[in-house]
Nucleic acid binder design. Structure first.
Lengths: 221, 221, 221, 221
DNA sequence: CATGAATGAGCCTTCATTCAT
DNA sequence: AATGAATGAAGGCTCATTCAT
């Protein structure tokens, strides 16, 4: 119910409909932060959005589609923000690149968990054409990000792939352990051996390995 | 039903019972490869094992216990095999250590997904004493493995943690892509840029980063 | 399905919902007449009510709650009707009191069996606050009834206790025999030696025993 | 397992078989004292008897048959003991008769609860010929008892019927209440208003009502 | 005769989805 | 467009009964 107090009873215009869809995704996101996919029922999402259960199905055909949309949104957001940061900072050294890639880490917790879902549950009960569209869109966005990175496209893509794998891996590791979020968690000093610094350290090691000491000139338009 | 065609109708001896338990775990494993925990019903496991639903409950008190046993098995197997390999080969360089750690990679595919479960679902509906026993056993085994590695215990544990995270991450990555298993998949030549070699490359980079150029003398007994 | 042929497909208004709840209770009651609690499945109740299994759970959280509601209903009904009858008739002699107590005997058949359940199964799987409310309500109603009886409260309560025990006992006896319901069954004449008259005779004997020849002035308000 | 330590591994002779059947009934009886019919599994009975589950089914076709046999036994025992007591004491007044009828009350708790079962669950899943036989045997025994009572047969049977109904009724009442066993419970003094004395009081009232002040001469052979 | 592993119908309950309103 | 009552497949689990040994 939170933060959607004033709102038209019915979404008539396209814009209102878009807004309603957005509200639903926000509700799902709020719950997603604290509960796993299986634990999270459509009923809860509906209640959180201040809507009836059936209404959700006007905007999303299945539960999976809802969460796939949520994933798309998060990816979009992160890629956009990171691309922008590359343009602003024009990082060169592996450390600098790592810093850029990790800058929006705090937004990543839900994203990482959604990515894990992608390989597990999502796309299972989704219209094939939607799945395909998702893949295409993701590809497009990644290409856009790659264009902003100070490496040749192949290398940049490899870097992203490593980032992706490590992100998921450390996320899962953190969930298997009593400790909390590996990425959001603040490093606690130079001698910190927490999960976050391990993750960062690994990312740096990879970047050193993958990229020549002197990166290409940035190709961002 | 698959591959358990000849078998006594009833498991009378302790050995037969052990075998039946083993069969059930194998059935669960086969299904587990293709479906997530929540998707996988005891009914399916029973059918796959060629047994009735109720029979499963003669061998495992709950669904969680069944999967905890599966996890235990996999851990035991991989740790044992890898520890042995350390003893045999006594690897020194990061490359050599990486090779040992990856040698039994094919065992890891289900293992890493089971490990994810551990922190999420397993141990929820399990007799407390069993959960405790599991934790203790895991701890013991890890210590045993660490003792065989050519690093001081803390470093060795960090290495394992990185291996674990990367393993999971690349697993998930591979599942999100048309390509197949990143670890099991055979490298396809010197210029292969498949997921496997990326995974390996990353592991090597980490090892280089984590370990001093000159490892300790191996401490394996 | 019986006797609920015309009915809205969905209960929208509060009244319709109340009616649906009522239908479910009636269905449960019809089955309850012929089967014990343990034998009676929610599936059967649903079928009898012409509803889907899940629908029952929209109206009752658990099986126990459903039957607790049924018991509450019966108690309420019998106590109310009997209290009213005391007010109307103001009986004095044991015979007159017995007549009042037995007047609504047809309501008692399911009631007494439900009462047995109360101490055995019900309240086991019921929200504590509901159980408490039930106890309070029952107490209140009994007090109300007692207030209408022409005896001091302790004696009145003893009378009710005897009525209760005898009611149950003769109920069971009748079920063990080819004959039908001992209480509902109509006496068949002055020389009738059926179960019903035995029951009535016993009740009268008890009343004579328990109550002084001259009852108190009725205290009904 | 209790008290059946030495016993042949297999019952070969008819006598041994009878003994084994007896052991099973004793085990069921021990458990029956503390648990309801539904709560009591055949597994438990088997364990208590120190036998395997399957063995029970060599002696009883169904769970119901087992408990029907138990009921038969208890009835037999009580009727026999009470008939004997009538012969010994030759009671005349209602109080004396009541005393005889209640003399073995402490043995009756399981019997009463079995009688309740009779009208509820037993005979449901029993071979019809067995049910018939049970009825016939019960009838026979009751006639035997009646012959020892100091009333004409019809009156005596009525008395027994009342005893039966009240027995069941007060049993059920006691189970619905926090208090304990109504009959076994010791009266606690002249002013005791416990369930037991109520039961006794009711029985006396009935006897007074049913029987002429001067009973017939006893007809016991 | 005895065993106890195996069976499978059945239990209560949940929840994504549908559809009458 | 919105609702939320209704659905019913599916879930984990139990236990009286069967049957291979």
């Amino acid at each position: 119910m939170s933060s959607t107090s004033t709102r038209p009873a019915r979404a008539r215009s396209a814009e209102e409909k878009h807004q309603r869809r957005y509200d639903i995704l926000r509700a799902a996101e709020r719950l997603w932060t604290a509960a796993s996919y299986a634990e999270l029922s459509m009923n809860q999402v509906a209640r959180e959005a201040g809507l009836a259960k059936g209404t959700l199905y006007l905007y999303f055909d299945t539960k999976e589609e809802l969460f796939l949309a949520l994933l798309g949104e998060h990816l979009h957001r992160w890629i956009g923000a990171t691309a922008e940061l590359f343009t602003e900072r024009r990082p060169r050294s592996p450390e600098q690149v790592a810093a850029v890639l990790l800058h929006h880490a705090e937004h990543l917790t839900p994203l990482r968990r959604l990515l894990v879902l992608l390989g597990t549950v999502l796309e299972r009960n989704v219209r094939p054409e939607l799945a395909l569209e998702f893949r295409r869109d993701l590809d497009l966005q990644l290409r856009r990000l790659v264009a902003h990175m100070p490496y040749d496209p192949d290398t940049a893509m490899r870097v992203l792939r490593h980032l992706y794998a490590m992100t998921i891996g450390w996320q899962q590791l953190s969930e298997s352990l009593p400790g909390s979020d590996p990425v959001t968690a603040q490093p606690r000093g130079p001698q910190d051996s927490g999960l976050y610094s391990e993750f960062e350290l690994a990312l740096r090691a990879i970047l050193h390995q993958l990229t020549p000491s002197e990166p290409l000139a940035a190709t961002a338009s």
